[in-house]
Design a protein around this nucleic acid. Structure first.
Lengths: 305, 305
DNA sequence: TAAAAATACTCCATAGGTATTTTAT
DNA sequence: ATAAAATACCTATGGAGTATTTTTA
């Protein structure tokens, strides 16, 4: 690996056209400079300058190799100084580090509260609401450092790490005047053929679309028509159901927070629960992000247990 | 100055998330790696990684400063490797070094011939014809490494070095049916009021425009109308004169080579000679260029003397 | 002969290695 | 208790200095 200090000496020699003068400028002895250039030349396996003591007006000349190296050396030195300055600045910067946590519309507020207060020593956690099912995308494209998301039990997200924080049952959102609304809970068989809100996720990770369609269904109780387009907010989802366009499947956490007189939620007893967890990029090595994630997991699992 | 070797170690630690594993990969001992990172951190005055031995799944974390340095370090290492490879290639490249020598249209062929055969050991000299008066520009913008050019005696060219090779008298180009064409030579007084070809050079170095206008003139024999536009070639200059648009001043070297039945050249006895010389950038440190220039000067002055 | 760079030789700073301790889980 | 990083300590490489020689214009 090239030694930037030697490159700097090489530049000095070329600039001054003299080992003696360059050595004086560099505050080292002339022999040390000679040896330094020799060291660089030895590493590169070629001569960089032609020592020309005949003509003091001409001085030291640059070889073809030296002429090639010179601009690169200047660029490298400048880049190194920039890198050093930036690193120093990043370290001493008084501004707090900001970590963004994305969450989907159905996220329980308690979870979000806990997440927002998990920022430690100089770290501020900012929440960003994502569209349904955009959590993975947000992590990958960097628009969120962390994400609170719902996912099928045991599911994996490519390039991501998932830490399960809680589980919630799935519920069916139904119009209040729907025959099934009278029951305390429902089964998939009851929902056979019911039109259902399109959850989107066609291009998302495997299993996510099926989660909100309640698939797979028993053979005797097939899924009804899937009615699109997908909704971006909880509000839209409820409006869809209230308008008798169809039912929707969501988590029990949603009706805890959001209520409407014309829509009821009924637990679907024969569907698995949904995992509610924290996602982050598998390759993320940032101390602030990882520590915040740990703090969130610790805090939420503690309060949950 | 940053040590690229240490940056490479820093990258390895971040990549592997472990000092122990990184040290193994780098073929050094773990304490040597610890000390190396400590050295880098000491130089930068800040921590780059957080040693986290609690959780082996998490491993070493990157601080904000480290996150800033990481991409810069990768770029620096890549740039250094590129510079090294390029320099090596430039040194071992079998292709001959090409040096371009620019010349203006009036340059004596003997001079150009001598210049073209002055390339020594692996250096090829290529001639590039320049427009009148563009020699300085060509040197500065790098389109020519050397230039053969005419200039006022004792003139200087900014950022350039001029080596005088010869002197040539100035001549007036006149139509063959011009009254002065009958004389063997002319004086400025004879040329009073004659329309003259615009030599251009308005934005060129001082003294160059005046050279081809024959300025300063005696008060009693003022210059005539300057007729533009400037001509790019000797051919155009002769055509201008043959068409009775006006006279032109050039050097005695031009009619030596270029003759036309309807145009004659007459020496202007009371104008200084013009210097014919080799120009190159003052800051040029390339051995090939300087040696070729020396060879040219030596060869041309030898044959001229 | 005078300059500039290379070489000879010495010294010591420090990078790296081994052994060990510390630290956190 | 274990595994990982830090620390202690030693060694030796090699970079830098002084003195001198070589080179060439």
């Amino acid at each position: 690996m090239l030694d930037l200090e030697l490159l700097r000496r090489f530049v000095a020699v070329v600039d001054t056209r003299s080992f003696t003068i360059a050595a004086r400028e560099l505050r080292i002895s002339q022999p040390a400079l000679s040896q330094g250039i020799a060291r660089l030349e030895r590493e590169l396996g070629c001569r960089l300058v032609e020592r020309n003591r005949r003509d003091p007006s001409t001085g030291v000349l640059v070889t073809a190799a030296g002429a090639t190296l010179l601009p690169e050396a200047l660029a490298l030195i400048a880049a190194a100084e920039r890198a050093e300055a930036r690193t120093r600045r990043a370290a001493s910067s008084p501004r707090r580090q900001v970590i963004t946590i994305g969450f989907s519309p159905g996220t329980p507020p308690a979870l979000l509260d806990a997440a927002l207060t998990s920022g430690a020593d100089g770290i501020e956690v900012v929440a960003v609401q994502l569209a349904w099912g955009r959590e993975h995308e947000a992590l990958v494209d960097g628009s969120a450092d962390l994400a609170l998301l719902q996912y099928p039990l045991g599911a994996e997200l490519p390039q991501c790490v998932l830490r399960e924080l809680a589980r919630v049952d799935r519920v069916a959102l139904l119009p209040v005047d729907h025959p099934l609304a009278a029951r305390p809970e429902v089964r998939l068989a009851d929902l056979a053929g019911e039109p259902i809100l399109d959850p989107g996720f066609e291009d998302g990770p495997v299993g996510f679309r099926e989660l909100w369609l309640g698939l797979p269904r028993p053979e005797a109780a097939p899924i009804g028509r899937v009615v699109g387009p997908p909704k971006a907010t909880v509000d839209e989802m409820y409006a869809f159901v209230a308008a008798h366009r169809g039912m929707a499947i969501t988590t029990a956490a949603v009706p805890d927070v959001y209520q409407r007189g014309d829509v009821v939620a009924r637990r679907i007893v024969d569907l698995d629960a949904v995992a509610l967890g924290l996602g982050l990029l598998a390759g993320d090595r940032r101390a602030g992000v990882l520590r915040t994630a740990s703090a969130m997991v610790e805090r939420i699992t503690a309060q949950g247990g």
